[in-house]
Amino acid sequence: MGFLVTTLIFAVIGIIASLCTRICCNRGPSANLLHLTLVITATVCCWMMWAIVYLAQMKPLIVPILSEGE
């Protein structure tokens, strides 16, 4: 799975989550906006975390060197 595909998956999960909050706890436009902000922030944070780790391993400058014992 490439970078873009997984990013897309994150986006889809984010959209589904925001739809869920919209449907499950619909408490007026103000509260919905808050929920949407929370979901988006959470999605962006999680995506950033994943993307950073993924990108760092894409073109490795160093590779795992096994310890002597193993």
Binding site: T6, V53, Y54, Q57, V63
Partner: peptide, 18 residues
């Protein structure tokens, strides 16, 4: 493996640290 190291043979590990 213990001197030069392993080699990347597949796509990057899809989620998290390899």
């Amino acid at each position: 493996a213990t001197t030069v190291g392993l080699i990347k043979v597949r796509d990057t590990y899809p989620f998290g640290v390899d």
